[in-house]
Every structure is written in structure tokens, then in C-alpha cells.
Computed example of a mutant assay.
Amino acid sequence: MKRTILAALFALALGSAPVQASSYDDSLNAARLGDTWPLVQLLSRGLDPNTVDEQGNTLLILAAREGHADTVAAILEFRPKLGQRNAAGDSALMMAVLKGHDEVVDLLLDAGAPVNHDGWTPLMYAAFEGRAAILERLLAQGADVNALAPNKSNALMLAARNGHVDVVRRLLRTDVDLEQKNDAGFTVDSWAQANGNTDIAELVRTERSRRTKASPALRIETR
């Protein structure tokens, strides 16, 4: 149904006049506010779908940040750059994850938005905010659990620091590194402990012990 409506909008917009100079501000406002029809008109008349504001936010990032699923779906029809990031390093997917816009996250993942790259990643944002359902979708798309944020923390460490026990339990079922230290010298359990999340610290220590028993150190005997 959504695609049918969008297709009709595109067809109507094709006969419109060329893009005017004022269209720049109009397009940014439309993306922020979720005014899908005016934005489709502008894009159909030749507006660059990768238009950015002064902070480097593309139309897709703006719409995704505000949770405008219909607008995101419309922009995606014009094949924007899915992995483009703003001046702060955030992509459309990262903003949707950060704000908890599940439908937008699904649209972007289905369109092929990248989940792995340098710097902060969508998985880190999901872990930091405790968004377990979104985190599960990102893992299914191959999100790297051992990628490091600029402060040298992995996703598990961020979830543990903020007390998101469900996310911690899920990440402990992956091959996430339990020995990683961030730039403050904390491991996942010591960071959890320092922030009063003693239950999480104990979960991590239990998992570390289990892994040690499951993979004993290789002993080489000489005769």
C-alpha cells in the first residue's frame, strides 16, 4: 500500500516545474517535519537526494532522526547514499537506532544501510540505549560486536556501563571480547561495577569463567 501511494505521488510530481533556489530550505524543512508530498515533488524535479544542511545532515538523516517512516521510504526511492554521515559522524541508521525508531530502522536495513564502519556504530548506539529488539536486528545483519568506539569501548561495555542487563545477556552469547579495556582502563565488568551494576559485573565474570573452562590453555609437555 505504501509503495502504491508513493508511486502515485511520483507520477504526479513528474509534471512539475524545475527546482528553484528556494527548494534547498524547503527540502530540509520537509524532511525534518515529515512533509512527504512536498519533498517528493522536489526530488522528482531534480533535487539531489543527498542534499545536506549546515551540519552535514542529509534529507535521509533528518527524516530518520525524527522517525518519519513514510518520508524515509519516499527518499529511499530516489537512491540516496545510505551510509553518508553528518559532521558528528552519525548516519541515518545510527540516528534511527539512537532515537528508537524501529520502523525506520527496518526500512534502512532492508535498503542495505551499512551496519559496520569506523567510529561509533549502530550496534554501539543500540547497546548504549538498551534497545534490545533493534540490537537483535543489527546482529542478524552482521554487526561487529568487537568494533570499538573512539573511547575503545565495545558494545557490551557500553551496555554494561548503563545497566542494560537484557542487552548484556544477549551480547554475552556472541564472541564479544571480555578482556577489552577502554581508554580509562576499565574492562566490561569493572566498568559495570564502578557504575553500581553489580549484577551485570557478576554475569560477565561468570561468563569469563565458563569460557576459560570450555577452552583450557594448551599445555605442551617436554620429555
Rank of each mutant, 00 (worst) to 15 (best):
K181G: 00
A217E: 13
A217T: 14
D177K: 08
A201C: 08
D189Q: 07
D177P: 04
T187A: 04
A214F: 11
G196I: 04
S215L: 10
T206P: 04
Q180I: 03
K181I: 02
L203D: 07
R219D: 13
P216L: 10
A194D: 03
A201Y: 00
L178A: 02
A192C: 12
Q193V: 01
I200T: 07
E202H: 05
S190R: 09
A217F: 10
T206W: 06
R205D: 07
K181D: 01
T212Y: 13
E202Y: 04
K213T: 15
R205K: 15
S209G: 05
L218M: 14
D199N: 11
E179V: 08
L178Q: 04
V188W: 03
V188T: 09
G185F: 02
A184C: 10
N182R: 02
A201R: 01
A192L: 09
A217Q: 12
A194Y: 00
A192S: 02
S209W: 11
V176M: 06
N195T: 01
G196R: 04
L178H: 04
V188I: 14
V188M: 07
G196A: 10
L203F: 05
N197A: 03
P216D: 09
A192F: 03
L178Y: 05
A184I: 06
T187G: 03
E202G: 01
G185P: 05
L218D: 14
L203M: 13
T187H: 02
S209A: 15
D189S: 12
V204K: 01
A192I: 01
R208D: 11
I200K: 01
A214V: 06
K181A: 05
V204Y: 01
W191N: 04
N197T: 00
S190D: 06
I220M: 09
G185C: 10
E207W: 00
L203K: 00
D189E: 13
R219F: 14
D177Y: 07
L203S: 03
R219W: 14
S190A: 06
Q193L: 08
R205V: 09
N182F: 04
T198Y: 10
R208M: 11
E207H: 02
A201V: 01
W191S: 05
V188F: 00
A214I: 09
